[in-house]
């Protein structure tokens, strides 16, 4: 479905994506894995032909630069940063995108239903929560029933239950034969959705592996998410790093990888530094940060 050859995208002197090639077959599901700044978002934008780049990318045989409109009609896209016209109502907004994709209101209604937004048509977009906006974005991506769905951090604005719903929806879609491309920070998503992981570092593709290759089943490490009181995230991350933990900070909280039998360690370290922990959760059973993404904490 998607073929990328020697894709390079520079912003000034910095190469955000550097000579990267990959191929993606029908009904495949791949995850882009890498630290912030590894070039995942830029690669996704290249795939959608949103700006010029060197090399070439085709979707369904259509060059995304030369025949971007047709190429993009194969793709539903969920962006990382959600930017909508805040004054519009949800109903008219999704109808607008239905118009752009030339499908009718029934398709728009179906898409809203799929993501659980049916009944909210009268709400103004500025009144939607981050999670609802994220689901709206997913609905917009799904309106025209495209064969490929590209998602940039699809669950970053969602709470745990919302995330589960979205991942369930995506699993359904994958099982129906959709091709998925998504960037994610969350190993659990990668494992449950992807059958291949492209590990990116500084704009280059370093490994193309299966999730199980990346996270061997019996890795003696677990990921915990800590919810720290407002504003202390950075400080807490620093404390944990000094205590020798792999730390990943995102909008949802602080993720720490710890040996399975040492889960109290980070809690203790933070308590010692007088940082209040509001809550914590164990994210997944047996996944660990892959070796290649230890850089992430520095990003």
């Amino acid at each position: 479905m998607i073929k990328a050859h020697h894709v390079t995208k520079r912003f000034g002197k910095v190469a955000a994506v550097n000579d990267l090639s990959f191929e993606l077959g029908e009904s495949e599901s791949i995850a882009l894995w890498g630290s912030n700044g590894a070039g995942k978002t830029t690669l996704i934008r290249c795939v959608l032909g949103m700006f010029p780049f060197k090399g070439n990318i085709t979707i369904g045989g259509h060059d995304v630069r030369k025949r971007g409109k047709i190429a993009r009609s194969f793709v539903g896209y969920v962006p990382q940063e959600l930017a909508f016209h805040d004054d519009a109502r949800l109903g008219s907004s999704i109808l607008f995108f239905a118009g752009l994709k030339r499908v009718d209101a029934t398709a728009a209604a179906n898409a809203l239903h799929m993501v659980g937004l049916a009944g909210h048509e009268n709400k103004r977009l500025r009144d939607l929560s981050g999670g609802m906006k994220q689901r709206l974005a997913l609905a917009i991506a799904l309106i025209a029933d495209p064969p490929i769905i590209v998602l940039d951090e699809p669950t970053s604005n969602l709470d745990a239950s919302g995330r589960e719903e979205v991942v369930d929806t995506l699993i359904q879609l994958r099982d129906k034969g959709k091709t998925l491309v998504f960037a994610s920070h969350r190993p659990d998503e990668v494992v449950s959705l992807a059958n291949r992981v492209l590990v990116m570092e500084k704009g280059q593709l370093v490994r193309s592996v299966t999730p199980t290759e990346l996270w061997p089943t019996h890795a003696p490490v677990q990921t915990m998410r800590l919810h720290i009181s407002m504003g202390s995230d950075e400080l807490a991350a620093e404390v944990l790093r000094q205590a020798g933990h792999a730390v990943h900070l995102n909008g949802q909280g602080l993720c720490v990888s710890v040996p399975r039998n040492r889960k109290a360690q980070p809690l203790a370290a933070l308590a010692q530094a007088s940082i209040e922990i509001r809550d914590f959760e164990i994210l997944d059973e047996v996944l660990a940060q892959p070796a290649s993404s230890t850089e992430e904490s520095k990003a």
Binding site: R89, L90, G91, S92, I94, L95, D104, A105, T106, A108, A109, N110, L112, H113, A118, E121, N122
Partner: peptide, 11 residues
Amino acid sequence: SISVDIVQRSA
């Protein structure tokens, strides 16, 4: 409001 109606009715 019309488009909202349309979406709701379609649903």
